[in-house]
Amino acid sequence: MDSSKELIKTVDLLLEISSLLMVSGANTNRVNLSIDRFASALHCNTSCFISHKTIVMTVYEDNSTLSCTRVKNIPPYAINFSIISAISKASWTAVEEDWNIDQIAKEIEAIKKQKRYPKLVVLIAVSLAGAGFCNIFSGDYINMGVAFASTFIGLLIFQLTHREGYNVYLRIFSASLIASVLASLGIVFKLGANPETALATSILFLVPGVALINSFTDFLDNNIINGLVRYTTGLMTVLAIALGLFIAMLLFQ
């Protein structure tokens, strides 16, 4: 009885780790790698099926007939590179120092409690990135100011609608629409040398870069289904952005 309870605890912990990694934006290969490392620290074997919304995992031991299979639903995605990095480090220390299950569980709890950057820092940094984009596509400083302001408001809308719990594509659409309407005002009033660049770059903060790059690496690793799912999510995001831009341009034509 005891050892089967131990097995259930192990599989729950490993499922928790892998769902945390998937939510944070790791590719499928990295999730498998981390699970293998933790499993080797806990002296057990695992096989798992990872999909976008669910993970199925079996844990078994070499010298017994016991095994345990459980299914876990993955919560909504929120990219968080700090968690990926911390779990990767924890997996190495766990293997090197031969941690037991309680130590690993304690470490994972600590990682989950890590704070994100404050909302205001994120807003300013991303708006500066928008201004930087505008400079890259040869806009002058006035265009960069327009790009900064519209990115700021767009991201603010995106964050506020997150709190209300709207559908993610609706949020992307509204953020893109509002950011591009604001940037279009720059074209109407002819601010700066290339007001079009501000419009083109004001919506780039919504671009699904992580989803598309992960989709490509998943394809190359032969995780075709996960790659397709990520590609489709990326495509839906791009469509939502394009629709917002399209409507703004139609309004101001």
Partner: peptide, 14 residues
């Protein structure tokens, strides 16, 4: 500016 744009996205991805 490319570096600053990279930093902005890094902070967005925490």
């Amino acid at each position: 500016w490319s570096g600053i744009a990279a930093l902005g996205f890094g902070i967005l991805f925490n």
